[in-house]
């Protein structure tokens, strides 16, 4: 096992562990922190694939800005660990585990069918290359995204604005 593989296993475990913790933890604040952990692991995986820019953006945008908002909202709403209430559909829990296992087995089988090195080379993820691609090949979706964001702002403003009357 090379050092690279060891690193990969470590960070992948961080991603998976964080993800599982988000689902299992009852306190929303802990859940948000677990999500940050997962994002940090993910950004390390991006860097290992040679996508430095995406890795940095993952930290700055997701683990940083967006999770900050998450935590803010949780604290503003003053959500505590949600009250222990009896789950309404207890049998669903027993149904969920086998289904999840079945899905994982199916995915495993499917992924096993694909072989070969599918990681992009080290050049692809540099800031320069991402920037140039955004301004040429991906210019149209890039501009469309800006319209999408404008629309999201208008929509959010409309829904959140207080009625006068």
């Amino acid at each position: 096992m090379t050092f690279q593989q060891l690193l990969f296993i470590g960070f992948a475990a961080l991603v998976l562990g964080g993800g599982i913790a988000v689902v299992l933890l009852r306190n929303p604040l802990y859940g948000a922190f677990a999500l940050i952990t997962s994002f940090v692991g993910l950004s390390a995986l991006y860097v290992m694939m040679g996508a430095q820019f995406i890795g940095a953006a993952q930290i700055v945008v997701y683990a940083g800005a967006i999770m900050m908002l998450f935590v803010f909202v949780i604290m503003l709403l003053n959500v505590r660990a949600d009250e222990e209430r009896p789950p309404r559909h207890r049998f669903l829990v027993w149904l969920a585990a086998p289904l999840a296992l079945l899905l994982s087995a199916g995915l495993w089988l499917a992924v096993a069918g694909v072989q070969g090195d599918r990681a992009p080379s080290g050049e692809a993820g540099t800031v320069e290359r991402v920037g140039k691609n955004l301004m040429t090949r991906y210019l149209l979706p890039f501009e469309l995204t800006s319209v999408l964001i404008l629309l999201a702002v208008v929509g959010a403003l409309h829904l959140a604005k207080r009625e006068k009357e």
């Binding site: 149209l140 979706p141 208008v154």
Partner: peptide, 30 residues
């Protein structure tokens, strides 16, 4: 843009542009 896109990225972004507006419109009567 959904109708003219020939690429997954452009398709997805334009599809979201279409859906996101409708989410807001459905809740338009606050």
């Amino acid at each position: 843009f959904v109708a003219t896109s020939g690429d997954l990225i452009a398709l997805f972004v334009s599809f979201e542009l279409m859906s996101l507006s409708v989410y807001v419109l459905v809740g338009y009567f606050k």
